[in-house]
Amino acid sequence: MIRLENVTKVYARGARPALDDVSLEVERGEFVFLVGASGSGKSTCLRLVLREERPSAGKVFVAGRDLSNLSSWKVPELRRKIGIVFQDFRLLPNKTVFENVAFALQVIGKRRHTIQLEVPEVLEMVGLGGKEKRRPHELSGGEQQRVAIARAYVNRPPILLADEPTGNLDPTTSMGIMRLLDRINRTGTTVVMATHDEDTVNQWRRRVVELSDGHVTRDQAEGTYDSSRRVRDMTPAPDAVTVGDA
């Protein structure tokens, strides 16, 4: 579903590359944690997949498409296949919950009756049924993130990217968000989640890809946040690629 082939990304000429010869493959329906310290290249990975950035060298394939020769007018089409969730939610403060989710469909030209049908359904799914008329500032952090997830998922994209979605949330709320992402993953959606949240990663035991200074230093099925614990766990890696392919 997502494949990086020997990707190098250098932002400023002469600077240390944000990604250095990274190769990574994520299968359809997989759930992958992208872990690593700040500046290790997690966000760059996500930005490359969204084609917000182009690699300095190497190739990025998303849903079978080579992004390096994707013309810019086809980028919107690509992004309709990818949902994205951020740490800071990025909701529109002057729109209600319903309008925030509907916005994602409006701007890609969906019909009104489709929106009237889809939005309540996805809000129900993320557990916000009955809060359609609230504005973001009237909601808790966890609820706001659910709205953001609803917005990312309402168009049923085959890929969902999450950039530290639990970064601003307490552990209990994070757990709720993770359950939601897991549920979305079970519908066959490929989920890639960049995170710092050690507890979550350790609890969920999914494939973990660790980045450090722009290199992939670990790629482990059912992994944990720390590579030190891997030694204890000794989890075999290979068959992880098919996990969650439901």
């Binding site: 969204l50 810019s72 007018w73 980028v75 919107p76 089409e77 690509l78 992004r79 309709r80 296949k81 990818i82 949902g83 994205i84 990025r90 529109l92 916005f103 994602a104 701007v107 890609i108 030209g109 917005r151 990312a152 168009n155």
Partner: peptide, 17 residues
């Protein structure tokens, strides 16, 4: 800019933005 950045991310076409 908030609206336009979201529009870009959810795949609104250039013309639409």
């Amino acid at each position: 800019r908030r609206e336009t950045s979201i529009m870009r991310l959810v795949g609104a076409s250039n013309v639409f933005i």
